[in-house]
């Protein structure tokens, strides 16, 4: 990022290639809508591009870019269409994730397992969607992207103590939503 700030435009391409999949997946798990998630991920990279002149390496670049992604997601969730929506998004309507055969190919697993995996994906996404926005952000940043509590605190603008509570409450809520899958877990 510092190289890009100093005028090396090619380094922006490297950053984009390195982070695009992680950011799209973060937005995807946040929003449960593929198209919106890709739009938001593109917005994240546009903001990175615009902010380059003001960039100060106070934290790791990954912490910074995920902070931007979190802000983009939280802003998107504030829009009335999400604020007043009480029903979960219909999995069949959202073009949810990759097709089972593509998953099977990608992960080198049997098609039946890929179908089960796709069902699990949908259930997990719906469960995540039930979490309050900041709780969702904290859980995603911890579980899928492995950020520390300190980094998450910077990303979502809360204290480490609040992050600790948010993650624990989030996990307990998800435990209730995904009980059937958790109970099956030792047998897998």
């Amino acid at each position: 990022m510092l190289a890009f700030k100093d005028g090396d435009t090619a380094s922006f391409g490297c950053l984009f290639d390195r982070y695009k999949t992680r950011i799209v997946n973060y937005c995807r798990r946040f929003m449960n809508d593929r198209e919106t998630a890709e739009d938001m991920a593109q917005e994240v990279f546009l903001r990175v591009y615009r902010s380059a002149p003001k960039y100060k390496p106070e934290a790791a670049f990954s912490t910074w870019i995920f902070k931007i992604a979190t802000n983009v997601c939280l802003n998107e969730l504030r829009r009335p269409k999400y604020r007043y929506s009480t029903e979960s998004i219909d999995v069949s309507k959202t073009g949810d994730g990759d097709p089972p055969l593509e998953i099977a190919d990608k992960l080198g697993i049997a098609p039946e397992e890929a179908v089960a995996r796709k069902e699990l994906d949908a259930v997990v996404r719906r469960a995540l969607e039930e979490l309050p926005a900041k709780q969702r952000a904290a859980v995603l940043l911890r579980i899928y992207d492995g950020f520390s509590y300190e980094e998450i605190a910077k990303q979502i603008g809360k204290s480490e103590k609040s992050v600790k509570a948010l993650i624990h409450r989030g996990r307990n809520m998800l435990k209730a939503y995904l009980k059937d899958y958790i109970d099956r877990e030792p047998e897998r």
Binding site: V24, D121, Y144, L174, K175
Partner: peptide, 19 residues
Amino acid sequence: ALDKVLRQSSDVSLSPDFD
């Protein structure tokens, strides 16, 4: 166990025209 279940959910591929 919950963390294991959550981590089993697969990543999505990007649309071909994303870039």
